[in-house]
């Protein structure tokens, strides 16, 4: 029997009967999730977000499972298709505040085309992409963000490809907000998500996360604390960095911060004829 009592300050946002989560010990997804819930909690208590209009959509993968613990309207849909599902829902009911949560495989590989076009449309949604550098749920295969040379179960001779920098990709499009945080800086996840919730248009937050079980195993950082502190060493905060600075490199460093902040009309506003 799971613990069903509401004790933790975030429990009112959770389907507590389903806890504990399925995530491995030391997985960063829970850190990101609790940071996002604190931001949402703040927005709800100050009255700027109606909890009944919040919709969480996720695809497949570890990060995709996160929404299933949330006490909101949630949808766990097809691999890579959370963005178009959310687009349909928001267009049918523009009052909905859609948050898409997914891993880098879900959002940037199989769902890459949808990501590009949602950003190009400046569509009204928040997308949070959890980057753990690996396909973890399926057992440690190479991901779009896996660093060059890393052993994975499908690149036994080392990853021959250079990783995809999703911040640079989305930043090159019409997104209103592009930011990167790390699970080693949960206050920044909270701050960025809090800000994103009140903005219009397409808002993209990449959260660099720890995956001691799969990525950690491949790079020799199997211990949760060791993985966390190694990631922490690599993360560099910059104030309003440019897109050129958006480095994400396991060897040279991971730059976090708010890369793009615009206030252009969103897709739905443009549909309704709003020009600015």
């Amino acid at each position: 029997m799971a613990l069903a009592m509401h004790v933790h300050p975030l429990d009112k946002h959770l389907r507590v009967k389903r806890l504990p989560t399925i995530f491995c010990s030391g997985c960063g997804i829970g850190i990101a999730l609790s940071a996002m819930l604190r931001a949402l909690d703040k927005r709800i208590s100050e009255g700027s977000v109606n909890p009944n209009k919040v919709l969480w959509v996720s695809g497949i993968g570890c990060s995709g499972r996160a929404v299933l613990y949330l006490n909101y309207d949630v949808a766990h849909v097809l691999h890579g298709r959370a963005i178009p599902f959310a687009i349909g829902a928001v267009l049918a009911n523009p009052e909905l505040k859609a948050v898409v949560l997914g891993g880098d495989g879900d959002i940037a590989a199989i769902g890459g085309n949808h990501l590009i076009h949602a950003a190009k449309r400046n569509f009204d949604m928040v997308v949070v992409m959890i980057t753990n550098f690996i396909y973890a749920m399926t057992g440690g295969q190479v991901a779009p963000t896996t660093p060059y040379g890393v052993y994975t179960t499908t690149t036994p001779a080392g990853n021959p490809e250079y990783p995809l920098n999703v911040i640079k990709l989305v930043g090159a499009l019409n997104a209103n907000y592009v930011a990167r945080a790390s699970v080693t800086t949960p206050h920044l996840i909270e701050q960025y998500f809090y800000k994103a919730l009140a903005m219009r248009g397409f808002r993209f937050i990449e959260v660099v996360a720890t995956c001691p079980e799969m990525f950690g195993r491949h790079i020799g950082l199997r211990d949760s604390v060791e993985m966390f502190s190694e990631l922490k060493k690599r993360v560099v905060y910059r104030h309003r960095p440019s897109l050129e600075e958006a480095m994400i490199d396991w060897e040279k460093g991971i730059v976090i911060g708010e890369f793009v902040e615009r206030n252009n009309p969103s897709f739905i506003e443009l549909l309704r004829g709003v020009k600015k």
Partner: peptide, 10 residues
Amino acid sequence: EYVCPDFAIF
């Protein structure tokens, strides 16, 4: 509390 991935400490 902020770093706990499992809503287990507050």
